[in-house]
Nucleic acid binder design. Structure first.
Lengths: 346, 346
DNA sequence: AGGCATCACTGAAAGGTTTCACTGATACGC
DNA sequence: GCGTATCAGTGAAACCTTTCAGTGATGCCT
């Protein structure tokens, strides 16, 4: 059994008794060229019989477009990232675009190399999810120079240089903390995700704004934590520090639901009753938060992905759209973990 | 500003004063061809100055290999799928392979079209995650005919026709249910995920085996549920049916942790105390399960992804390996939700 | 001095498609 | 019967790389 070459357009052309050009016109469905139905049928049949499959590489090479977008992200592990991807996929699949994945494994060098990889593959545009740090500025500007459209999700550090899709985290955090203050809390600590990512910064900002608006002087030792991706032991250590303060907090605002869930565990292990002795609130409205009855702020990562993808695909058509930052609204979801008697829907 | 063409090898060649062939040899790092260091330097510099970026499409076209694998999955929403992806990504990124994503949105037609799409892109191989149904048999056999390596994750329906990576779900379910029986339960119901996916079938099988081994006659009305992806309302309805039986169950085995979590909610809403009145166990050892203190069986989706990717990449080298089904061991994790006093590690 | 090996390259084909500029042939109007 | 449209295609270049088969020019051996 000789491993035979895959059939090409030329093979189809020969079998159908026409030129390769005609096959191309028919198979790529160009309707501005007149080919009678009979000929089309012959070509379709020949293609069918040979098991012909168009070669996207050759097509991309000559067209200069690949109908492929690149998606860059630090890792594909949390459900937040997964849901953003799901939204992107949904839109891209519906519009017949392909998705080439690139992860940076939380490593700036690799991130830059992955961007290079995507460009080598001649993707038509790039969506980057929650990418961080000033180091990323280099490739963000590179893409701009090269004219490769970029949409950044959940990060607005490069607002003005690329489209971005974020949620209103300052407001969300503020709503959450104001809710705690209304419940009578004054010593509210923040399990933070650091300052590298804008989402983390914004939530901290909203926290501080809420305190200040109520005349509560924020204390330096009330804020701990440095990333959304701290290993569990680190989270536990930080939470213990916060709970062991000389004047212990009565409420804790975690930068996302996962951190809040972990904080809940630690508190329980320390014999602290929730919400009686400690109110805990999270951020993001994840499944974990729902199951733990966590008061939180609603976020819709799938929608963020959809919007990002739609924006990118639109930009591939209309090149000259002004860059913008799309901010999704947030909404407070009150559940048991904060000890509130009020309940919102959902 | 004229939109100028991207620099090609020929441009680099001209600038460095050598032939295109030489540039190719130097830039693709072939060490079997002798080119003095001075020439290499000149070429690297020329490439640098021009901002040359190799074109993977052209390379793939001539090489007949793309260093790209396709990943097919129903959707990218659950963290189970995300973690499998993460494992795949990790291995592929490390070995300098790219990942082209294709989702079928739980639709058999689209699934077949996505496979076709991957083949048009000339991927070197395909990993398919939790793909189901006899309809998939068509493209599984197609890939075999075309000689495109395939690894199937979390599904062994096509064992023998393609490599697969699964966990020992029959055993896992059996351990779980035997544990319940040891705790004294006799009326154990199963919130099932139907019969379409092998994982769901296997867990049901393990459940039945455990009952039979203890001389408990399984009743038809003890098994309800038809998919891992039931909408929440459907899950609730099914759980209520199970809990409302004339002789109510004392234990419930859900086909995965998410279903178990939902069942827990429903039970609580019905005023049923867990584990006092109803023991609940799940499957998969997910974050949700951990936070709910759910007794479960450990699964490592990231590892499954890694193993699948390693298997596929290896098969791309050694074409003639026999097909095999890799079965990962499972491990019982006892927590509070089953009312057991024994505790295992983790 | 002649033969051979190695060095440092080069030319051209091949890979599969799209697209522009054509070309015969038929039909139609007058 | 002639000019012009439309029809139904075709030929060849272009896209960018890899790779095979060479080719002069040295260096070395005997």
């Amino acid at each position: 059994m000789t491993t035979r070459r895959k059939p090409s357009m030329l093979d189809v052309a020969k079998r159908a008794g026409v030129s390769q050009t005609t096959v191309s016109y028919v198979l790529s469905g160009r309707k501005d060229v007149v080919i009678p139905e009979a000929t089309r049928k012959r070509i379709w049949q020949a293609a069918q019989e040979l098991g012909y499959r168009p070669n996207s590489l050759a097509r991309g090479l000559v067209r200069g477009k690949t109908q492929t977008i690149g998606v860059l992200m630090p890792r594909m592990d949390s459900s937040f990232h997964a849901l953003i991807m799901d939204g992107i996929q949904e839109v891209c699949t519906a519009q017949d675009y392909r998705v080439l994945l690139a992860d940076s494994r939380h490593n700036a060098d690799l991130e830059a190399r992955q961007v290079e990889m995507l460009l080598e593959h001649r993707v038509d545009g790039i969506i980057s999810i929650a990418v961080a740090g000033e180091a990323s500025g280099d490739w963000v500007r590179l893409l701009k120079r090269e004219g490769v459209p970029l949409v950044i999700v959940d990060e607005h550090t490069f607002e003005g240089e690329a489209d971005c899709v974020i949620s209103d985290d300052v407001l969300g955090a503020r709503l959450l903390v104001e809710h705690l203050i209304q419940l009578g809390h004054r010593r509210i600590v923040h399990l933070s995700a650091g300052t590298e990512m804008s989402a983390a910064r914004d939530r901290r900002t909203g926290y501080l704004l809420a305190l200040q608006a109520s005349g509560i002087e924020p204390r330096e030792e009330w804020i701990r934590g440095d990333s959304f991706f701290m290993p569990v032991e680190r989270i536990r250590q930080v939470v213990e520090e916060l709970l062991d303060l000389p004047e212990p907090p009565t409420a804790l605002f975690a930068a996302n639901d996962d951190l809040a869930a972990e904080a809940t565990h630690v508190a329980r292990e320390l014999g602290i009753a929730i919400p009686a002795q400690l109110a805990v609130v999270g951020y993001g409205n994840t499944e974990v938060g729902r199951h733990l009855q966590l008061t939180t702020v609603h976020q819709d990562p799938r929608l963020m992905g959809q919007i990002a993808a739609r924006r990118l695909l639109r930009r591939l058509q209309e090149t000259e759209m002004p860059v913008k930052c799309i901010v999704l609204p947030t909404r407070l979801i009150v559940r048991e973990s904060c000890g509130s008697s009020l309940k919102t829907q959902n």
